[in-house]
Write a protein that binds this DNA or RNA. Sequence first.
DNA 1: CTGATAATGAACAATGTGTTCGGTAACGAA
DNA 2: TTCGTTACCGAACACATTGTTCATTATCAG
Lengths: 183, 183
Amino acid sequence: MDRRQRKTREAIFDAFTELLSKKDYSQITVGEIIEKADVGRATFYSHFETKDFLLKELCEELFCHIFDTANEQNSGHRHIFSCDAPDSAFLHLFQHLKRNDNNIAFLLSCRNNELFLGYFKKDLKLLVENQIEIFESRKSNLLPQDFWVNHITSVFVETVRWWINNGMKESPEKITSYFFLSV
Amino acid sequence: MDRRQRKTREAIFDAFTELLSKKDYSQITVGEIIEKADVGRATFYSHFETKDFLLKELCEELFCHIFDTANEQNSGHRHIFSCDAPDSAFLHLFQHLKRNDNNIAFLLSCRNNELFLGYFKKDLKLLVENQIEIFESRKSNLLPQDFWVNHITSVFVETVRWWINNGMKESPEKITSYFFLSV
DNA sequence: CTGATAATGAACAATGTGTTCGGTAACGAA
DNA sequence: TTCGTTACCGAACACATTGTTCATTATCAG
């Protein structure tokens, strides 16, 4: 990728992120983004079809890394399928968030977290499906499979939401225990 | 309320609802709404400050009834606090949805259900707080109170979402049992 | 019937969107 | 360094949408 492209793409992402901390997604205009990013209008539209696509690509870039490493955690032959496993993929996710790599936690906490949590949930569901055996229990046998997957995924997302909105005071280990307790 | 006011308000709500079944909330314009509702532009803005307020008021009107009756269910001295109680407030909610009074289920299922579920959740949380004793358990004692309330509320909302998106094939009784099982 | 109130429709400025295009500057490969 | 390619610029553009205004007409409740 051309260095110029990378630079403008970065500048637009940064400007967009900064604006998201101040106002609603729906209130942000392309004009504001390009002004803050200091790029031309035509440049913006050569990179992103619309503002919605900008959001989408930002999420993909952000979540790509965090979920790739989380999935690796589960690959290979090390099947640590205990709820108490100190290095479960879910604990790793919470740790990533705590470290706030790439402002992920920040974006998930801002006014428009619905938007991000939606994309987050999509990726998360794949992880849950891969690790569904962890959650086998008396309950899970009485419920339809996809209801159960949805349930786990939702509980994780809502745990993240609660944690972030409350200032992430708890340690990743503690919040992981909350998650496994409540699921 | 003046009959004229009621009529236009109704017409706008109807037009808005119909449009929501066809396109994203963000893609719907005031122009489309007033055309379909067959009212003047100035009339629209004399009723609703913006499109967002229209959504808000629609939700309030829709959920007001359903939650009022649900809360009554819990008032008085009949405290039926068993999870298996066949007439819990939660069962009543599922029954309301199944009957699809006022197109509530329809709106909660359409493309933009995030918006509606957001408002729905706000009202629901009050109900859960009132009935939190139902959910006392070993788990609930190990988790912070507001984490627990959030958890129950979210699980209910996600159960509704799953049910509606899957065509509401299960009976209200069945889905109530799913809810109490998974919570 | 009558005074009050709501709806109309047309016009309005202001703002935002997405596209176009010729000129300029930075790029990477040879 | 050179050279062909590619991205950026910036200004302009047509177009759509927003939210407001106002004089006029229709409908209301008592």
